[in-house]
Design a protein around this nucleic acid. Sequence first.
RNA 1: GCCUGGGUGGCGGAAUAGGUAGACGCAAGGGACUUAAAAUCCCUUGGGGCAUAGUCCCCGUACGAGUUCGAUUCUCGUCCCAGGCACCA
Length: 867
Amino acid sequence: MEQRYDPKSIEPGWQEIWEKTGAFEAEKDPLREKYYLLEMFPYPSGRIHIGHVRNYTIGDVVARYKRMCGYNVLHPMGWDAFGMPAENAAIDNNTHPAKWTYENIAAMRKQLKRLGFSYDWNRELATCDPQYYKWEQWLFIKMYEKGMVYRKESYVNWCETCRTVLANEQVESGNCWRCGMPVKQKKLWGWFFKITDYAEDLLKNCDRLSGWPEKVLTMQKNWIGKSTGAQIEFPVYQTNESISVFTTRPDTIYGATFMVLAPEHPLVKQLAAGTEQEKNVTEFVEQMARENRTDRMTEDREKEGVFLGAWCINPANEKPIPIYTANFALMEYGTGAVMSVPAHDQRDFEFAGKYGIDIITVIQPRELSAEETARDQAYTGDGEMLNSGPFDGLHNRQAYEELIAWFEKHGIGKRTTSYRLRDWGISRQRYWGTPVPMIHCPECGIVPVNEKDLPIVLPEDIDLLEGGGSPLAAHEEFINTKCPKCNTPARRETDTMDTFVESSWYFERYCSPNYDKGMFDPDAVDYWMPVDQYIGGVEHAVMHLLYSRYFTRILKDLGLVNFEEPFTRLLTQGMVSKETQHCQEHGYLYPEETENRDESVFCKKCGRPVEIGRVEKMSKSKKNIIDPNQLVEHYGADTVRLFCLFASPPERDLEWSEQGVEGGYRFLNRIWRLAENWIPRLKDTPAYKDAPTDLDEETRDLYIKTHQTIKKVTDDIEDRFHFNTAISAVMELVNTIYNSESKITPEAENQQTLGVMRHALETAVLLLAPMVPHITEELWAGLGNKPGSLAKASWPKYRQDALTTDTRLIVIQVNGKLRAKFEADSAADEEALKQRALADENVERFIGGKPIKKVIVVKDKLVNIVV
RNA sequence: GCCUGGGUGGCGGAAUAGGUAGACGCAAGGGACUUAAAAUCCCUUGGGGCAUAGUCCCCGUACGAGUUCGAUUCUCGUCCCAGGCACCA
């Protein structure tokens, strides 16, 4: 051990030892209980940011902790390596996406290693590796054969900036999740995964995911968006056509006074054809097609529509009702047609008001008259049926059931369920992704590639087009092929897959990353999966986590795995934020662009005072980012890790504070000095581990504090991952050791006191080992243990008999207010406590001679006297 | 609008089955050491009150009620903040 704590000189050495000894390599071992800990793998952007550091530190603590507890821990790391930034960077810097990606991976791997994370690097994978995506293509073909994939032309979310299609999950309030630009609707051919087949199952199982945060489950449930109701047929007047509608309120059908079709609905043009409305309708539909989704779908957008010049028949009362097309109707939801009941739906109410359509009340609440109901706004509650023929007088909930029965009996409609969830559009019109392994043959149509021809590798010699567009479509060698069935010249599919496909099964690949006979070795997956603990950002609550759950079901239905939920427990960590600095003249400022004078901050450029802005998520544009590299350089990996854990519990946001980091560094120094002072004295003394009864009072206090700390830290990590309070507890222990130090005079220095001291010190080192692994390895070796053995040391256990002293602090209350405290023997019975409390001087004052109504005694805690 | 969280000192945050509110850290102040500074170590630190400076008193966990011997914790109502969804028929 060196004199001074110098993280820079000790950390790389331990990292080397871990690597050399293969300390974190995981081997399948059926005799040992496994623990699969996974953090969401990063996109190789080139630099690790502080959000990664936090995520991976939390994961690493759990991995190291579980290892110390004896589990066979799998803790892998890899790269979500396909995606558009590589392509864009390649265009900007005139390089190749693969080169850019692999260089970034090398840089980031180095950063992760420098932080001392305990990954099994032998299992590292990159999704852009043909040996990885080969199996994704294989799975695609299996799914195609089972009818789980299909190709269709439809309106899709199109991002003009990224020049590609987006899945519904990837549109965030009308904008592209990646670049933030508005998303348009575009009619395009594309490949879809039939995730809607699993909607019900994905929804139902949410309730069984007890290890997931409620927040994430709610988001998934809302996204799947189940609603129950009926599908009802409305015949079109004087034609053979009929319009199918989905409604959650079949009980209001007698109040349906018009019909609305989505502008994209196939019947719109057909029904308007030849009527005097045809021109208006065409214009309206074209205008809707031009508008982007955001503009059309904002809620404050006024309801607009046009009459089609056609009517349909309300099957309940056989009255004709006009058919409209309107901006608020969505082709993607239900059947793309709405039976509109203005009296009982606010949106329909507004539309009817604007276009002068009849409003007929069919449900009347008890507290309002028929005239008052639905006068100023739609009435959406329950009540008694009226204007509804044979159903008048019924409660609407009952009418709901009877109407559905009536529809089913007369073949007019049936009970159905509708989901908001759409099929997953996975086609991307870009280069840097997994090629869809399909061939378009003029004779045979669409034909999957032969399995033996996999992988379909991305060609390397491509011209990336400025402003996007698939270079594959222009690559003659890639496109031209022969049909696997009939051998005539055919064309390859040029779409690549959404990168969320790769991340939907990487956790299975980690189990056997080099397996070449399939996606994964079934035995390995059988042993390691499911992931016991998954950790990542909440931003993936719907996208990645829903897709992964879906994929696991696919694999199960294909007989490849025997479980359906991939992640048993999920932890979503909060984001990292920091205060911003803003100058009137120069906008947001980096700390180095400001200077401190007279307790205020000023802009270096113009000298104006700088406003210290609110705490916000770190981003380049706000200039409130911090660079992990610089921090590690300055303080070492352990301090950076310690602060990430100490500043707040994992699920909450973490506010970055330079001074807080400094505090963490001070704490590590404090332990270092403690060890440095004591190690020479107790090097040859074994740790005292027996019952506390034989110890003198002062030594016993330290011994008990040590065991209390073990319990506290273990519980904090085990139950809640609250590392902040775990660290506090060790800080308290260290403070206690400092305080005991003065009491161990040379005269008092005997084997027993030294043994207790050693035990305390050793325990602090063990408890901190998962969080700050480098300094603790150094101290562990200093204490005479085999260098590098801490990573595999056993987690300390506490003695039940060493958790409490024989006296307890008892609190005395009068009428619930604290009035006095005293130390009581733990053996004292209730009566004794009561007598002692009543005898207290201060207590007597507050009783003031009033009669005592009741005395409540809580063992080991308090006495409350009620007067 | 709906659904989740959340609101505690100057700050980050504790209080895990209703039982001492403010652990631990940061910042601030004071002291020791030093020629000095840094570092370190020790002490003080929610607000207010006092003829009795105490094992003292009053107030205090967004606000207002309630349940309870006792509420940061449970119930109801109000306000504010963050995140998600948002014309879904």
